[in-house]
């Protein structure tokens, strides 16, 4: 199993029964309703009053709220920043809420619409502050989301592509088979008829090298002959020592040039030898049987 990239970066909030009940109780004060909340209410068996304007979730863009840092510091000035207290506090609240949450989760239908998103929470915040300013009910957002479950974006676990897996498996088997053959070549008489072992194959591969070397020798010899005889024929009457020197110089120049090409060719040949030999893919049924047999042998 592989972890894939997170596709949906939105956080989700599974609303509790308390939240839904509260929304239901205050439904006559709705002026507008995000479509997600409307669907949520409907799917949980609540009635959405008619005449409520339903707004699309992505019509409004919400920005991060600006935090009044001065007020925050003033309020929390006498609170000791002790992680132990905070921990015990949160534990206590958790204990209080767990049975309730369990009940809620059983009642929740598992569907795509049973979550609240960030824009819905923004709407909820403005709605609650409106209610508070009208003195209808004095409930804060944090009090109603306390009992809800926050679902963070998570990586999806995805199985590996079966095609890739099969390919890897095939390559691994080929590699193992090759190693096995190499190991058992000397022991097993049944495997002696591999192309690398026949004389024809070896002759062929030697031929290539012999031809390359013979070419080298011939061209060097031809260069020497040109220097030794050819120039004497053209100019005439050269002393023997000078002719020899000319022949050697011509042969050397040609040998240098030829050496370069020879080295290149032999290097290429080495690389071909090093490269793994690929077998042609065989029909799966026979190849399986054959492979099994090879290992058994």
């Amino acid at each position: 199993m592989l972890k894939s990239t997170i596709i949906d970066t939105r956080i989700r909030l599974r609303p509790s029964k308390k939240l839904l009940d509260l929304l239901d109780a205050q439904k006559e004060h709705f002026k507008e309703l995000p479509d997600n909340v409307a669907q949520l209410l409907k799917s949980n068996g609540y009635v959405v009053p008619l005449g409520v304007q339903i707004i699309k979730a992505n019509e409004k863009q919400y920005k991060r709220p600006t935090i009044d840092v001065v007020l925050l510091e003033k309020l929390t000035a006498d609170v000791i920043d002790d992680p132990l207290i905070a921990k015990s506090d949160s534990e206590a609240t958790e204990e209080d809420e767990t049975p309730e949450e369990d009940q809620d989760q059983r009642q929740q239908p598992k569907g795509p619409t049973s979550f609240l998103y960030l824009s819905d929470l923004h709407w909820l915040n403005t709605f609650m502050s409106e209610l508070r300013s009208k003195n209808i009910c004095n409930v804060f957002l944090y009090q109603i989301i306390e009992s809800s479950e926050l679902i963070l974006p998570e990586n999806e676990l995805k199985p590996r592509n079966p095609e890739l897996e099969a390919r890897c498996q095939r390559l691994r088997e080929e590699q193992q088979n090759r190693e096995y053959h190499k190991m058992t070549k000397n022991v097993d008489a049944g495997l002696k008829h591999y192309p690398e072992d026949t004389i024809a194959y070896q002759m062929k591969s030697i031929n290539k090298q012999i031809i390359a070397v013979a070419q080298f020798i011939f061209s060097v010899a031809a260069g020497f002959v040109f220097g030794f005889l050819g120039i004497n024929l053209i100019v005439g009457g050269l002393p023997f020592g000078f002719r020899l020197l000319l022949g050697v110089i011509c042969a050397l120049v040609i040998a240098l040039a030829e050496m370069y090409f020879l080295a290149k060719k032999l290097h290429e040949y080495d690389e071909v030898l090093d490269a793994p030999k690929r077998k042609k893919p065989e029909p799966p049924t026979t190849s399986k049987g054959q492979r099994a047999k090879q290992h058994a042998e």
């Binding site: 009044d68 309020l75 915040n125 804060f140 944090y142």
Partner: peptide, 21 residues
């Protein structure tokens, strides 16, 4: 005001989680 501030902090936390993701 404390309640409102706490609400805002929660919303800010959600925003930050999304942005971080």
């Amino acid at each position: 005001s404390a309640g409102q501030l706490l609400d805002e902090l929660y919303l800010d936390m959600f925003h930050l989680i999304e942005e971080h993701t």
